[in-house]
Design a protein around this nucleic acid. Structure first.
Length: 207
DNA sequence: GGAATAGGGTGGCCGCGGTA
DNA sequence: TACCGCGGCCACCCTATTCC
């Protein structure tokens, strides 16, 4: 008797750019340039438990290493990724990056609420802590380019990925997220982050 | 500060009810 | 009947918000 294993490979990612929109003409995230990409890659078993996970960060010179991670993923998770991260990475990708299995958290929040919310607003109320910094500072850290500022940039990008991961996990486990509205009232967002499991048939010995 | 988009504020229009 | 005030609805414009 051979039993099937249900697993999902998930990749949670975030990017930081070299420039802000003020530095470029028009609106094309691809023109901002990529300074660093942080990726949390993991496998999840049939119980929804993370069996293994690893955080990696890649500076612009190492970006070639990230593409195999994305193309093998069952779900690529980001926040506002479809409207920002994906277009920014597109020109650098060796394949059609936008055709992969993207899962944009903000898109789901917008679908549930009808309007957009920041990752910080959701994380603060849902997890009790928000982001450690903001995206503009990430650009300044890159432009400063000192050992200390690059360390801050790396830490910020990885922290962003961890916050995204925690929000995603909370939504998947509880079927809801939280945020504070403009009247400072705590609100609940009903979400469905369920993911179809991939069935892996154990290989029979061929020898 | 870029594009996109939702929310809020404002003003115009219309219908209804009260009063002279 | 004519006038006035009020409320509801709609369109428009401005502001706030997302990402970096």
């Amino acid at each position: 008797m051979v039993s099937s294993i249900l697993v999902v490979t998930e990749v949670i990612f975030d990017i930081e750019t070299k420039k802000i929109f003020d530095d470029i003409e028009g609106y094309n995230p691809a023109d901002l340039g990529i300074s660093i990409v942080s990726v949390y890659s993991r496998t999840v078993n049939e119980k929804g438990e993370e069996t293994e996970g690893e955080m990696k960060s890649f500076w612009e010179d190492d970006l070639a290493k990230i593409w195999p991670m994305f193309i093998n993923a069952d779900r690529i998770i980001g926040f506002n990724s479809l409207h920002f991260d994906v277009p920014a990475l597109m020109p650098l990708a060796p394949y059609d990056f936008k055709k992969l299995k993207h899962f944009d958290l903000m898109d789901h929040v917008k679908g549930a609420l009808g309007f957009r919310l920041s990752l910080n607003a959701i994380a603060s109320e849902t997890l009790g802590h928000g982001k450690s910094d903001n995206g503009l500072n990430a650009v300044y850290y890159w432009q400063e380019h000192s050992e200390e500022s690059l360390a801050k940039l790396l830490k910020y990008c990885e922290m962003d990925v961890m916050v995204t991961k925690e929000v995603y996990d909370y939504g998947q486990k509880n079927g809801q997220l939280k945020y504070k509205d403009k009247w400072n009232t705590s609100r609940i967002i009903e979400v469905d982050f369920s993911c179809p499991k991939v069935v892996i048939e154990p290989q029979m010995g061929l020898f």
